[in-house]
Design a protein around this nucleic acid. Sequence first.
DNA 1: GGGGCTGTTGTACGT
DNA 2: CACGTACAACAGCCC
Length: 526
Amino acid sequence: MTTAIHWFRKGLRLHDNPALLQAAKEAQQVYPVFMLDPHFANPAKVGQLRYAFLLETLSDLDTQLKGIGSRLYVVQGNPAERFPELFREWSVSLLTFETDTEPYAKKRDQEVCKIAETCGVTVAQHASHTLHNLDRYEAKAGASPLPKSYGPFLKLFDSLGAVPQCVETVTVDIMPQDGSAVPAGEHTVPSLDTTPYPPLANPLLYPGGETAALARMQLHLARKQWIAKFEKPKTSPNSLEPSTTVLSPYLKFGCLSSRLFYHKLAEIYKASPGHAKPPVSLHGQLLWREFFYMCGHTVPHFDRMEGNPICRQVPWDSNAQLLAAWEESRTGYPFIDAIMTQLRTEGWIHHLARHAVACFLTRGDLWQSWEAGAVVFDKYLLDADWSVNTANWMWLSCSSFFYQYFRCYSPVAFGKKTDPTGAYIRKYLPQLKNYPDKYIYEPWLAPKAVQEKAGCVVGCDYPKPIVDHKQVSKDNMDRMKAAYAAQAAGSDDDAADTPKKKKPAPKRKPAVKTQGIEAAFKRAKK
DNA sequence: GGGGCTGTTGTACGT
DNA sequence: CACGTACAACAGCCC
């Protein structure tokens, strides 16, 4: 008799779950386990909304497993500490789990594999979180370096051949009936009020779980035209209802298989001549994720500036007041403050809204480190995904992948394109809701009488702008230029033995400035 | 091996 | 107002 533990971490689903499938097929008794690792149950690190999302996901998983004669075993504690006793108590001989390529997980899993070996437990890992096993990119590239931009990545991706088909969903016919002696009331999914988190003020806008994930995917897939024509840059960062799919939280936790979504999209594309293509299409979005996962898997110190070989070294400031003002919606720029309010209260903001606030915090206005911004996003986002979040912060701060630092989002002009009347600002910053359209993006320009009539005086009921965007964005471009030049000079020194191309003379005098001192998606739009 | 070309998920400002 | 253009860069590829 084989007894297996299937260890859920990401991959919180029954469909396209090869590791769970193996356990179900090979063992006569399967314990589906989720470990509530105290590393994550930390309100400073994982926000309340994402923790609630996780617990909802676990509840859904438990319900689904019960539907096929099994159940979920939630175990509190550190995996390396808890596994030995579980192996012993349950006489386990097989441990299955989905491969995780993030640094914390790699280290944790290595440790657990060692423990399993000591306990005589066979370990089986399956890569099913990304479209391909990430190791295949390295293997295919061979001696040549892995791509650092999207186009070349696409070529590499294509060279790997077709995306693997999904494996069969684990059903009642496959899953052994649970014959364990563990009482039903033990190892249950905790409710939020037994955790370090306060109860939810409102139900999650995007409920956790595989069931919700598949329902959301199906609702979008039904809009074939919309799917086929989808181009990310043409969607709106500040619509009142999300202009994109909001499948990202489900992909992050693996409630939805990226391969399943990929193949469902391919079916629609096949029947839609002239469909959108990467990088802007929905396939393109999955490929951005894939690209960034590959980078996170292969680049050392990926989530830091120092010691990260693909990251520009920029002398960011470290100003706790500015960072807090940005995080807490006190910059005095309504577009920025509204976005940060949506982030904190709903756990999801549009991709381009992320661009706007990330640019503002880093190279655009406040000159704070992208690492500090990434930590804030990582706390609040339901879809906080280590590789994707890190990569996008480097992108927006012109630290890697993207370098056109003179292309700077305006905290005033950018939002106006898709929301000229400021409806989005009025929703998330109700103190400004009575401002005339003319001043909603720049309330400090409104005459005093207008401010009083709107019931919101700038400097009293709403902050004055913490920086003058026109001025600081110009200054910061000079600082970026200086940082790029300094690094180019530095790398020339490093490689003094190999002759290098001379830096072209700057067209303008390098400004020697201050040195180094950052539910609701039911209907398509009419 | 270097020089040149292209593409790249923007904005402000001119006509 | 729509459109064209310049603006402080880079990776990857071609020749």
